[in-house]
């Protein structure tokens, strides 16, 4: 356990060192990332000026959900961008090297790269959350918990869908579409989801656990719902990791690639 932790910290250090090799590019990407997300703010303002209350959700709910979603997305991009590239790593046989190490394969695969837009996303997200705290008086006491929950849901969701790459070749592009929609759903107000989509948002793509329920808690303080969300997050993470290991078994069978050497 201690060895795994030391390896994890060393991996994170390496990932950051690698990502910051070109500091200029990192800074520019962070600035552009912030700018891109700032563009959405006027859109939210226009929408809520036309419809100030969408089934109980007002502008502060939407901005808090948006800030939470973008910040968690950025955390995953900064610390575990490797999760998003798992289909590519599978296609290129890059997991081979991790399989020969005495450490968990998932750890190496997930933290093998970092995306520098993540810095901009984290800064923007945090800025928006703090703005909600200052301007709308939203309590930020449980913000660290919400950020952990959101990041775990994003990471698990990405891992879950990336794992399909063990069975489907060249799944990278399709996986990116899924991650994008995951992010999109997480940053939209809960009331716009109904029927099947609402069920999906609580199960296969559990964006409700990462933004909708925390937002509801911040404004309504339903502890039971929050505990349900925390348990849901843990369950979803276990499901995603188990699914990955199932895929890894398929990789170890070698059948995905046909005959090799």
């Amino acid at each position: 356990m201690v060895g795994n932790l030391a390896f994890l910290l060393s991996l994170i250090r390496m990932t950051f060192r690698s990502a910051t090799m070109q500091r200029g590019a990192m800074l520019i990407r962070a600035i552009f990332s912030i700018t891109t997300h700032l563009i959405y703010i006027p859109i939210w303002l226009v929408i809520f000026s036309v419809a100030p209350d969408i089934q109980g959700w007002r502008i502060e709910h939407a901005l808090f959900a948006y800030g939470l979603s973008i910040c968690c997305w950025g955390i995953v991009s900064l610390f575990a961008f490797g999760l998003r590239t798992i289909p590519e790593q599978i296609d290129h046989g890059e997991l081979d090297a991790y399989l020969t190490l005495p450490k968990p394969v998932l750890l190496s695969a997930a933290i093998s790269s970092s995306r520098n837009t993540g810095l901009g996303e984290v800064l923007f997200g945090l800025g928006l959350l703090i703005f909600c705290g200052l301007h709308f008086g939203v309590s930020l006491v449980l913000l660290p918990l919400f950020l952990i929950m959101g990041s775990v849901v994003f990471a698990s969701g990405i891992l879950f869908f990336a794992t399909i790459g063990f069975w489907l070749k060249q799944f990278y592009a399709s996986a990116e579409e899924i991650y994008f929609n995951f992010n999109l759903m997480a940053s939209r107000p809960a009331p716009i989801f109904s029927g099947v989509i609402k069920i999906l948002a609580l199960t296969l793509i559990p964006v409700s656990l990462m933004t909708h329920i925390p937002v509801q808690f911040v404004f309504e303080h339903h502890w039971k719902v929050l505990i349900f969300a925390v348990l849901g997050v843990v369950g979803y993470a276990v499901l995603a990791v188990s699914f990955f290991h199932l895929g890894l078994k398929h990789y170890e069978s070698g059948n995905r690639f046909g005959v090799r050497g």
Binding site: G3, L11, P102
Partner: peptide, 19 residues
């Protein structure tokens, strides 16, 4: 080896991998 980093950095990472 990590492509953008000097090889000595990978050596250090591996030293943690092998405890």
């Amino acid at each position: 080896l990590w492509y953008h980093l000097p090889a000595k950095d990978t050596f250090e990472l591996l030293s943690y991998a092998y405890d």
